[in-house]
Design a protein around this nucleic acid. Sequence first.
RNA 1: GUGCUUAUAGCUCAGCAGGAUAGAGCAGUCGCCUCCUAAGCGACCGAUGGGGGUUCGAGUCCCUCUAGGCACACCA
Length: 569
Amino acid sequence: MTNFKNIIAKEISKIVNIQEKELETYIEVPKDSSNGDYAFPCFRLAKELKKAPPIIAEDIKEKLKIEGETIEKVEVVGGYLNFYINQKLLTKEVLTEISKKEEYGKSDIGKGKNIVIDYSAPNIAKPFHIGHLRSTVIGGALYNIYKYLGYNTIGINHLGDYGTQFGKLIEGYKLWGKEYNIEEDPINELTKIYIRINQLCKEDEKVLERCRMNFKLLEDGDPYCKEIWEKFRELSLKEFQRVYDLLGSKFDSWNGEAFYSDKMPEVIQILDKTGKLVESEGAKIIDLEDKGINTPCIIQKSNGSTTYATRDLAAILYRARNYDFDKALYVVSYEQTLHFKQVFEVAKLLGLDEKYTNGLKHVPFGMVSLSTGKMSTREGNIVKLEELLNEAISRAKSIIEEKNPDLEDKENVAKKVGVGAVIFNDLSNSRIKDEIFDWNQILNFQGETGPYIQYTYVRTKSVLEKAGYIPQIEEIKFDKLGDESSKNIINLIYNFENILEQVTQKEEPSILSRYLIDIAKSFSNFYNDNKILVEDKDTQNARVYLTYSVGKVLKIGAKLLGIDMPNKM
RNA sequence: GUGCUUAUAGCUCAGCAGGAUAGAGCAGUCGCCUCCUAAGCGACCGAUGGGGGUUCGAGUCCCUCUAGGCACACCA
């Protein structure tokens, strides 16, 4: 589509001694549309030209040969040059683009680039709680959006299925396995064991040592430990799958930490050769003091077993070789910032091409806590995600019963609305912000929420159904959409592709969430201001088409966030 | 103690990589369904933690103070 900023920058660059590209970044969209569609502030030219900004603006305007079909008017206001574009032309272009592309906004700017996204990664044998939601939905949204922009995207669920925690579970199972009904309610029962063994570890250092040994045995292939581990893993995954099914989460790979168990000797070997792997207090570490990180990275513990870091390094090696990634994103809470700093630094010693080490990126997000404090599986104060989702669904159901009792397929709609509300709630704020979990807030379906987006979509569908047709783009009289609310919608839709690119630049799905809210609001205004199904055929055609376009963008956008749209609600 | 991070309305958040008069939602008060779904729309109420600095211009950049959060070697 026409890049207006570029057109304006190009013309200005003929007059001012600044690169076209740089000029383009100066051009902004005025907050108040009465100041035009685009603006060029002249203040920063004042020093060099030794003139007052309004005079510079006048001078540029004099020389500017831009007014024509595309840019209708240029005005000087203070130190600004304000540009007014031909709205009819833009409307035509945007709606035509929508009519041509089934998948509006899709592009191939990422063609030929591989992106690995590491997300969700719950711990086996522990409950899937609301703290795991963020990684799952943020990662999922980034996955969808990168893919939509043409990147070859690989989603990896790097399960926490290894480590001393399993040594602990194995120890607990040995001690009290018979007292618990693990088959029936695996995660809850295993959690009880986990809590109990942790308690014992605290009281008795020897027990903790035995747990660590169990993990060492597991790593060394001890059949008994391995059997128990496999059983726990399988039972847990089955439970996790229920949550993933509700959320609609999919992964290309389920290679968790254990997958790398046989790939770590190579890491240790490579690091050994660099001469940087040194012994300290019986463990093998890499000192990172000179890199400004004053905690060393432990590669091998004093009892010979590996650490989380070693496994991540093995994973980097594996992913570089098998996925040839241009970017590897780790959607993991900010608690682990130091860990990734260490790992990414050590990764530079693995002898990989810089392409890989430069592509490593931690995408941190804030923590979810309860009003009573931090969640802890050990303390038992957690909110399980499945519980939350089911609660949201039943809440949606009761609202449907109240507002639309004759609705068909209520169960399905309630599921889409309830789950959509939970997902949207998590994706609508900047990911770095902490979140205090609040039932009332999440289960509120009014205002800037997932259900609001869905409701707006449903309204568009309803209008289209009443209309009974979608006009051909050739029949649309674009000047029928000159009113303020139509204009707002067109401008927003025009921005869609740009929004998606911003999301990937900042790894920030909330940009898309907010954008969908903006569209939904604009449409609600439009819907309120205008009757869509009217006598005048041209007006109706244009409005119906705009309605159709809004529905399309809302649906695509929601889908990218991982939210399904009901047709009625 | 060191490092990272956050601070905008009573609450939850936006603020396009410095620009024109700081925007929403929730909560509260009020108004709008004989009219395409009122899970909606409109109105009122109300804000940049303190102090310096850079700049023509600062919510945004720098310094500092204050207050939260997180992390700091054999958990992941």
